[in-house]
Write a protein that binds this DNA or RNA. Sequence first.
DNA 1: TTGTAAGCGTTATCAT
DNA 2: ATGATAACGCTTACAA
Lengths: 378, 378
Amino acid sequence: MPQRSAKLRVTTKDVAARAGVSQPTVSLVLSRSAHARVAPETRERVLKAAAELGYRPNVLARGLVQRRSYALGIIVPDIRNPFFADVISGAERVAAEEGYAVLLCEAGDAIPAERHLETLHGRLIDGVILDAVGAAALDENMLQGLNVVLIDEPPGGRWPGVATDAAGAGRLAAEHLLALGHRRFAFIGPAVDVHGLRLRERGFVQALRSAGVALESAALRRAPATVAGGQAAMRALLADAAAGGLPRPTALFCANDLVALGALKACATAGVRVPETLSIVGCDDIEMARLVTPELTTVAVPARELGARAARLLIRQLADPPDAKPDAKPDAGRPSQRPLPVRLVTRGSTAAPPPPDDAAAVARAPQRPRRVPRKGGR
Amino acid sequence: MPQRSAKLRVTTKDVAARAGVSQPTVSLVLSRSAHARVAPETRERVLKAAAELGYRPNVLARGLVQRRSYALGIIVPDIRNPFFADVISGAERVAAEEGYAVLLCEAGDAIPAERHLETLHGRLIDGVILDAVGAAALDENMLQGLNVVLIDEPPGGRWPGVATDAAGAGRLAAEHLLALGHRRFAFIGPAVDVHGLRLRERGFVQALRSAGVALESAALRRAPATVAGGQAAMRALLADAAAGGLPRPTALFCANDLVALGALKACATAGVRVPETLSIVGCDDIEMARLVTPELTTVAVPARELGARAARLLIRQLADPPDAKPDAKPDAGRPSQRPLPVRLVTRGSTAAPPPPDDAAAVARAPQRPRRVPRKGGR
DNA sequence: TTGTAAGCGTTATCAT
DNA sequence: ATGATAACGCTTACAA
């Protein structure tokens, strides 16, 4: 029995008895405080009694009758990815402030998103935030009768979403590298189909194309969006370059910072100098990006704000459901808000490409690490 | 209305009607499947009807009558700290596998742990995991009637806990540095009173003392247990050393990796060479520790396992409450399990102290960064 | 303004 | 083995 002290819980009935009023009156006073169609004197008595008894409303009971739980679900693929930790943190903050609980779900190998949705459904969750769990591929009726907000998922579906300017992020990275003078690029992207990351890729590739530069397919790698994935992909990239099968890229863009950090690490291990030989740009601007050497140039994405915004949108959606109030302002806020802006953060991992003579440096990367004096402070 | 399609939810009553049995019979079949004191033929019919109708039990309703919610709360001070992210991830995994939902709460400035407990209480949470939120300082009756498991909190209270060998972690760090030949130490610890971190500190200090070395108070700094905190504390340490007010430490232990990474960063910025001039040891072994240069020597703490263990302990506690079954095995598992072992991970941020001549290096740290060739690969 | 009655979807305690 | 019947604690009409 999870509940020790069986009969010790104070209910509205107890409060009613002590205040000398009926039980519904107590409910009236204690629930929607503003509505208050109750005599001020009675209200006082009820509040006093409740306080004295230490009354706490039973949210489950309220939920049963109202068919809702005042709780939000949030499903992410990986809690340990700092980006998602930020998103969760932002959503939790807003939810808690608005009186909603947050049911955290990690979708993955062990328990897929579908099963989490099943569970959440059974708990009469008010709404759910899905971030990068492939909502497009989800069974349509899993979301049936649920209020959903998508984060960085493809738009156009039944559900509203919040998003970052993912394509813009890729574009910023490309433009930065192009401006530095780079012409031979590589990209490490996600192995699975995550919309937000794919959009970054697309933005990057298209910006290159606009500049008349092509990204050769051998320079496009796929790996899990983790440090280990980035590390492995970079190793493979270097090995292929050494074997002569690559057009010797001088600049690398990674779908997120974890991958970029893994790539950076692989470079350090292999003795490839960053940024002298290879420039690397990440995406997200997680805290870690500023701690490595050289500091990672990246595109900052406001993850926490993203989570907060998703929660706010979801909660607002609960207040005035999409179906109701067709006379409300045409499309005030209902359509997905415009994407959150991203911005380039230039740090130490990018520089002008090596002079032509040295351009083959990646291919003949020394086996033993070699260091070079760093340029500036910071 | 969070619940669209008002009357579309399938209940046991609907199933009963379709199966031609009474509603409680449906409940009997669908709830505790093993107990099954129901005719196999009836059972079949019920199951079939339920499947056809797509019945999903209403957990809230069940919770109301059983006075429990099949949900666990977890309160941590900072979701974005990778250590807690790991703990949460471990706990979530176990909980989900056992059919429990996880209500995530971040205690802090905006919403203190007390308010979260209040909320959780109202949701008839089955139990709650508290990690580093200062359970000792919590109002006793906030935990009233709650099943609680503490992580890295002081033992001896009413509630069981799981812990890591925090003192051992500090000791390992000290012994490692002592073995390298260090004699002048510094420590950066938490500003607030977090038991686990304090224990690391104590283990460190005591191990030093056992070796006949004292940690001077000027070398003991307090800061928020974050990167920024570590950075600031390290800067102060260096400034004081430069001013001649410090015994020029050659080795630094930090209460956790975030702080250590901040300190490392501050050193890089100030041009203090690690490990040549100053050795740094962290604690936790978060992923980031292997990504910085030099890689951070640290004491590995199995955070994810810690969270998983806490969840398991809590769930077991729900099955057989502490009060019941006094005839159970004397103390089989009820007392806090022994601390999870930690282990030293030696990496690049520690080395022998500089030769005596160079010992004042910290004090006369150059303003501009200066680099030195690294020793080995890895 | 307030009390009475009904019901939310379950589980639990009885008879049958 | 199964079916009434009563909770569980609350909100929501509807009377008074």
